[in-house]
Every structure is written in structure tokens, then in C-alpha cells.
Write a protein that binds this DNA or RNA. Structure first.
Lengths: 229, 229
DNA sequence: GTCTATAAGGAGATAGAC
DNA sequence: GTCTATCTCCTTATAGAC
């Protein structure tokens, strides 16, 4: 019915496709289901895209490039590195809890891409992006709490991504919030243990609640179960 | 052609289904592809199974129950806990490298089960089993190296499973052996850091190569990059 | 540019001969 | 019990009217 620039149509179809995948999985994302979700007619699909495969490739690309947060660093409750990391991980986990279907869709799209010879290398690029985002978070966390990472940041980023992936997968499987939070506390300890007290001073301690002013409390933090668990 | 007890037929179809899934993914596991893999005719499928869905459910069950190793503990190179854990993780990783398609199939089956309302709770059972196996490994590693876990073993098992999952997923995505091994070294340190030197003596130090006899060397082992990386 | 109608093929499942 | 042949439905994709 309505006229629509082809770019707009493509964009809407991509969004619709992701929505369908989130709801029913990749296998449910038929051209018919997608156009219905987008409120279009079937023929419009093939006017905007050469094939379903082209849409999937485009979607997979878009999804990689718009991936934003691995974990958002928010200055710690007590200024500690562990606490800061744990807070960040808990925020990430909140996002997962808030929209589990999105997360499931991401995993499925990754696996779909790994199966498609045409999308060779996509999964690798996705994980590279995850790591880049993690690098930023780790860098900021260390700076804010006055620490220095004892290993190449890129390596630590890979460790962090592995932990978040594992935590997410397990939670998607069993939905056990408490368990996820305990593993998050563990993850925070594990990552924090890879830092040394560094020369970088925390930028500012203002504006945070419960400022215990206990700066540079670090490395050996076994047993710090944080506010979680 | 050949007569065959129905139980045998079911068993062969299940094995064929898993092979097809490993090769082409769940979406490629059509009844036709499965019977071809098994060297049967299509009608035999529906003689042995009510429906494709029934086979998938059965497969998913079988796969859970026959899952054997999360990580196989082999006495450490130097008797340390970190080393023991790292060795075990490296062995696990070797298995993954040796048959990546199997691992991919496992992830896909889990996700498939999570999408099927009929298989509600399967994924949770699978992860419970993973944890039980991890508990055994952790228990043995601690006993052998004379340590005591400072947290409930079930929690640590969840941490370990998250790490192995994350390591596996990342490697399946990018195939970077070095990175995987570095993350494994990190994982070993992280888990080992959750132990305290305990009263349990190592059972025996005989039969292991490079027995440095340095018993009870523990907890603070950052930087022990082991034989990996 | 957008629609209806349909082609062409693959899917799960079954009928019925042997 | 095992086969061939077929039903029915759903998929991607296109033809052709408007």
C-alpha cells in the first residue's frame, strides 16, 4: 500500500527479523513470519532483499556493529576494583534478565553465522568486538580505582568475555539468579586478581554513595562476596 | 531390507541424527537426511519413531545422560593445584579441538531444547549434570594436591562450567588456540584462588612424571603460566 | 512500487503393497 | 517389518496485473 524508500523497508525488515528470531528462534524466521511482523506483503520482501540469505547476512552484520555494552562500568560502591567490576557485571546481568530473548537471539545468530560458509569470519569479528568493548570497560575500571592491569588488556578482555558468556549461557539454561550472582562475584574476584595497585589515581570519589574512601584495596580479595549472592 | 529389532533401529537413528547435526546443524537434521546417514528408508524412521520431535527429545535426553567429561583431572606436572587444574582444562580443550563439531552440536542441541516447550527443563538438567561432573573433578584435584575448597563445591563447579563454556564458545568462533590457552591459564588461577591449603594430604605422588614433590604450594599463584600459552 | 496468484521444491508423515 | 508411492503443508522465490 504505502510507498516507502527501499532503505527504510530494508531497515524495518531487519528489525522485524530480529524480533522474530528473538521470539521463535532462527528456524522460525521465515520470510513469511518476517513480513508479517513488519506488516508487509511477501512480495515486498523480495523487492527489498535479493533473498532470505541476504537479509540474514545483513542482519548478522548489523548486529555485530551495533553491539554496544559488554559491561557498563559504574563507579564502585566502596571504590574497590572488585566492587566496581562486580557492579558492572551485575548491570550487564540485569540487561540479560530484562531481555533474555535478545541474548538468546544473539547466541543463535552467532551459531547461524558459524554454519554459513558465506559468513565465514563473522563470528570471529563479533568476538573481537566483544573484546574491544571489554577492553574499554576494564581500562576504565582500573583507572577509576587506581589500578594497573598486570597482563595485556586484550588477554584480560578475552577472560572477561569468556566469563560473561558462560554466566549468560548457564542462566539462560536454568534461570537461577542466585547462582548467576555468585558466579558474577567470583568473576569479579578473578579479574581483579589480575591487577596490581597502580600509579593511576582514581579521578574523583565525589558523587558516589557510601564512599568509604578506602582507596587502593586490591589484589588479594578472596572472600569479598560484595553486595551480591 | 534387513530385519532389525526396533531398539537397534532407534539407536542407529539417534546416532545418525547426532552425526548429521554435528555436520550440518540442527536445521539440517531432516528425517530424510537422518535416514540417509543411517542407511535406511524414510518409512523406517516412522516405524521406529512416532515423529521427528520424538527422536529429537530422545536424542537430547541421551546426550545429557552420556555426557562424560567436563575436565579430566590428571595429576599435575609439579603437584600444584593451579597446574593440576590447568592440565585438566588443557585436556578438555584438546578434546574440543579434536572434535569441534561435536561441541557445536552440543550447544545447538541445548539451544534447541530451550526453544522447545516440550523439553522444558532439559537445559537446566544438562547444566546440573555439567556441575556434578565438575564437582568430581574439583574434588579430586583438591584431594590430590592437598587443598580444601573455601566455598561450597557446587558453587565453584558453576564457576568452572561458566569458564569452560566461555572458553569453548570463543574458540569455536575464532579458532585461536593461543588465546584459548591463555584464558585456560587464567581460569586455572581463578579457580585455584578459591582454595585454601587444607589438611587433606595428596594420596600418592608415585607414577607422575616430573614429581617436584613440592607439596602444598597454593593460593597465591598469579603468574604461574604453567606449561601452556 | 505494490499487490495477488502461483510456481517449484522440500518438509513430515502415512497408505498400502509385499 | 520393510518397501514404494503419495498426501499435505509450508518454504523461498517469481510472474504479471495494477
Amino acid at each position: 500500500m504505502t510507498h516507502m524508500p527501499v532503505a527504510e523497508r530494508r531497515s524495518r525488515l531487519l528489525a522485524a527479523a530480529f524480533a522474530v528470531i528473538a521470539r521463535t528462534g532462527v528456524s522460525g524466521a521465515t520470510t513469511r513470519a518476517i513480513v508479517e511482523e513488519a506488516g508487509m506483503k511477501l512480495a515486498s520482501f523480495h523487492y527489498a532483499f535479493e533473498s532470505r540469505e541476504e537479509l540474514m547476512a545483513e542482519l548478522v552484520n548489523e548486529v555485530v556493529e551495533t553491539q554496544e555494552v559488554v559491561l557498563e562500568v559504574a563507579t564502585a560502591a566502596d571504590g574497590s576494583l572488585v566492587g566496581t567490576l562486580e557492579q558492572g557485571l551485575l548491570r550487564y546481568f540485569d540487561q540479560v534478565r530484562q531481555d533474555p530473548r535478545r541474548e538468546r537471539a544473539m547466541f543463535e545468530l552467532t551459531q547461524y553465522a558459524m554454519r554459513s560458509p558465506a559468513m565465514e569470519g563473522f563470528a570471529a569479528r563479533q568476538y573481537e568486538r566483544y573484546r574491544r568493548l571489554a577492553v574499554q570497560s576494564l581500562d576504565e575500571a582500573a583507572t577509576r580505582t587506581g589500578h594497573r592491569w598486570a597482563r595485556p588488556l586484550d588477554e584480560l578482555a578475552a577472560d572477561l568475555v569468556a566469563l560473561t558468556d558462560g554466566i549468560t549461557l548457564a542462566w539462560l539454561a536454568d534461570g537461577d539468579d542466585g547462582r548467576a550472582r555468585r558466579t558474577i562475584a567470583f568473576a569479579a574476584r578473578a579479574i581483579a586478581a589480575e591487577a596490581s595497585p597502580g600509579p593511576e589515581r582514581p579521578a574523583t570519589t565525589a558523587g558516589t554513595t557510601r564512599t568509604t574512601t578506602r582507596t587502593i584495596r586490591t589484589t588479594r580479595t578472596i572472600g569479598t562476596r560484595g553486595g551480591a549472592a
